[in-house]
């Protein structure tokens, strides 16, 4: 039983947790800056990116695809900015124009090129395949100390672990500028901070998190984890420090609960096959947000009225 768990479920759960945390950390600032939908836009344009990466490199090597996805994310951010500036269009609509066009381009490219031999399709891009990231070499908990078995770990685990660590470092190192520029951009500028640079850096970090998480788990989780845990955490507290901790806790809970419910829930209900783990993780994060919206101690707006 333990061996089976380590082989089939340990790695997907770890990857899910790390991806969720990597997205939730920058998500906190995106939600507060009202840029929550950047994650939505980026995760849509990842599709053309991986297709172009595949076509240029001719292989399904993850690095080529990740490079393509990262490039596409940068292209999307620049395109949104271009449309917004040149066309003088509000950011939401500019985003809608850019990401739908790029996504449509990706689908068309996919249909036009012969990718039937490789596992590359729209469904995969949307749902990911968390369940398939199994650790074949694992025999049981002891394998965690067995170098031969460890070498057989899916490469996605290492990548998402590095990215989660990078997100953590980014949040810690730039905590003060991020916090000040998020809450009071003018004050941050008075202090001599380059607020444009901070904002752009945040979007780039979000793009890196989105691409890495997408590689492992598909874009639904990416969007859900950018928004749901931070939004739920926002309803729990007024302090940013506490909010970030809550959001990480919610992200971890959603990933673990979602995976367990998807994998074992149907068995408990008498079914034989598991359901989509990515979808279930997103669903659980939504339930968490729903509970926070109903019972969170700081769910209402208090104090000075906002401009809303």
């Amino acid at each position: 039983m333990a061996g089976e768990f380590v082989m089939l479920s340990l790695v997907p759960i770890l990857i899910g947790v790390l991806a969720a945390v990597a997205c939730a950390l920058p998500g906190n600032f995106l939600v507060l800056r009202r840029q929550a939908l950047i994650g939505d836009a980026i995760s849509h344009v990842v599709l053309p990116g991986i297709v172009v990466g595949f076509l240029l490199s001719g292989t399904v090597s993850s690095w080529a695809m990740m490079a393509g996805a990262a490039g596409a994310a940068v292209v999307a951010v620049l395109l949104i900015e271009l449309i917004r500036r040149l066309g003088r269009i509000e950011p939401g609509a500019a985003m809608g124009v850019a990401f739908t066009a790029l996504f449509a381009f990706g689908v068309l490219l996919l249909e036009q090129s012969d990718t039937s031999s490789v596992h590359l399709d729209v469904q995969h891009a949307l749902y990911g395949n968390l369940e398939s990231l199994i650790w074949v070499e694992a025999k049981g908990w002891n394998s965690l100390f067995d170098p031969v078995a460890l070498a057989g770990l899916p490469p996605e685990l290492g990548r998402i672990a590095i990215v989660a660590l990078v997100m953590l470092l980014f949040t810690l190192v730039f905590w003060r500028p991020l916090k000040i520029s998020t809450f009071d951009e003018d004050f941050a500028r008075v202090l001599g901070m380059r607020t444009n640079l901070i904002g752009f850096g945040l979007v780039i970090m979000a793009a890196i998190a989105a691409v890495a998480a997408f590689d492992a788990v598909g874009s639904i989780i990416v969007i859900a984890m950018f928004i749901c845990p931070p939004a739920a955490a926002r309803l729990m507290t007024n302090r940013l420090e506490t909010q970030v901790l809550w959001s990480v806790a919610f992200a971890v809970f959603s990933a673990v609960m979602g995976y367990v419910l998807a994998g074992y829930g149907p068995l408990w209900l008498g079914g034989d096959d598991a359901v989509s783990a990515a979808g279930m993780i997103a669903t659980v994060s939504g339930l968490v947000l729903g509970l926070a919206a109903l019972y969170g101690p700081h769910r209402k707006c208090r104090g000075a009225p906002t401009d809303r």
Partner: peptide, 29 residues
Amino acid sequence: TRLAEDAAIGAVLSVFFGFGVVLLTVIQT
């Protein structure tokens, strides 16, 4: 709640879509 509209949009779209995907896998089985 005090959430802004963009956060609400993102939350609804990802959660509903995620649940839809769960249902699709149920249908497959």
